[in-house]
Amino acid sequence: MMLPRSSLFRVLPLVAVVSVIVTASLWACSVPVFRYALERWLSDPYQAIVFHRGPLTPAQQTLVKNLTPDGLAGRLHANVAVRNVDLDQNPDADSLALWQQSKGATLPWLTLHYPAAAKIPGVVWSGPLAEPAIQQTLDSPLRRDLVQRLTKTDSVVWVLLEIGDKQRDDAAANLLQARLTYLTSVLKLPKLDPQDIVSGAEEQLRLSFSTVRLARTNAAEQVFANMLLGSEPDLHEIAEPLVFPIFGRGRVLYALAGKGITHENIDQAASFLIGACSCEVKEQNPGVDLLLAADWNRLFKATLAPDKDSSLLPGLTGGGTKGTTLGKSNETGNTAPENTGAVEIVSIQPTEPLTPRGPLAGSRLWIGGLAVALLVAAAALLKRR
């Protein structure tokens, strides 16, 4: 029996509403964006390409191996994949076009590219295939410190990439720090839905920011600076200080540039990252992943374990003071002091921790069932008419 057209028109709005409810329930949660990203969003792999002609020597093969899961990249858990392009073996058109951008290059030549998911053309960094180049590509002091902060102390790390003009750099840093200090006193973490809390696994979830000033002349962080500058079109051409909010597993939200470093824009970025995750699908959220050396699953689990140091409570907690020295990580995750010179870090936290919350459960099945029940009820109602 077919429904009359009038009945169909009555049910269509209900179906539309239910569809919205189902979509919102399945792709949204009450957990803050920065925390959901840390727990659930896997880092996209960068693409390293080694251009060469003819077979590589054993020493060169060893260098390339360090960019694979069986080499240094694997031991550091860096999000990178590598492929060789032998220019004597008729490479594909795309690879050949990339090689043609490397004018004056000496083979073998290493180029680093953004993840395919970022859809950013061009080269992050390029240089001769050599051990120092590989090490700087995979890791750096500031990136190690960034990993530690995102997993242990900070909700968001705000990197200020300086232009080299002290007056403008200081003005941007002062504005950013003052505004973030204010925001820690007024922003509130979202109230968690019980469905998003694992029973019996409570922890403290603290709102905490830190700012990092990075000089563009810092040679040790050149690859990192290039990643930031290439994350959006034309940033290389802006002769102004730039601010990059970084969260989750090392994902840069977007850049605030020069006169765009305002209270309003800082508020908007902070509110989005501290607010509830309205869309759980990573690709539908703004941002670009950075290349970092981190075993995120192990580091994150470590934050859930009891900590003897009360200043580092389980989960994302406070800690850190002005003038914190960067650390150099070894493969066990320990740190040792290192003087970086051209980096300054300031931590910004509220005076009191926020309400204890639990980690994610992520269940939305009961809402889906409710939606189905509403559809069945609507169909039954129409059948009686």
Rank of each mutant, 00 (worst) to 15 (best):
T151C: 07
L150H: 03
Q195A: 15
F247R: 06
T317Y: 06
A215K: 13
W296S: 02
D139A: 11
I345D: 01
K103H: 08
A116P: 00
Q89D: 13
G341H: 00
L312I: 09
G287W: 08
K282S: 13
R384V: 07
L176E: 08
K259H: 09
D196N: 10
L160Q: 15
A239D: 10
L129E: 09
F247I: 01
A220D: 10
D70K: 12
A105R: 04
T321E: 13
V157E: 05
H236R: 11
R249D: 08
L242D: 06
V124A: 00
L229S: 09
T57V: 11
L161D: 12
T321S: 15
L313G: 00
T324W: 15
V33T: 10
Y254K: 10
N90F: 01
N218V: 02
Q100N: 08
E203K: 01
D139P: 13
L8Y: 03
G258E: 00
F9G: 08
L142C: 02
L360C: 08
D196K: 10
I274Y: 15
D170Y: 09
Q61R: 15
G323R: 03
L26Q: 13
L228Q: 15
T340Y: 06
S329H: 11
P4Q: 00
A342I: 06
H77N: 14
W125Q: 12
D234W: 00
E221Q: 12
L8M: 06
P55A: 09
L228N: 11
Y46P: 01
A336R: 14
G369N: 11
V281A: 11
A178S: 15
D169P: 02
I49H: 05
L176A: 01
Q167S: 11
E331A: 13
L183F: 02
D92A: 09
L42F: 12
L176T: 02
P121N: 05
D309R: 00
D154A: 04
A16Y: 07
L161I: 00
C279Y: 06
V346F: 09
N265H: 04
N339P: 11
S126Y: 05
P241W: 01
L316D: 08
G104R: 03
A305V: 04
N226P: 07
V343D: 07
E221S: 15
S271G: 04
G341N: 03
A171M: 14
P233D: 07
R144N: 12
S363C: 00
Q177A: 14
V18E: 02
S310C: 08
L146E: 05
F209A: 01
L112H: 03
N297K: 13
L187M: 14
R249V: 06
K152N: 01
L14D: 06
A377N: 07
W158N: 05
S102R: 14
A133Q: 06
T217L: 00
E221Y: 12
S19M: 02
G74N: 04
K103R: 13
A16K: 10
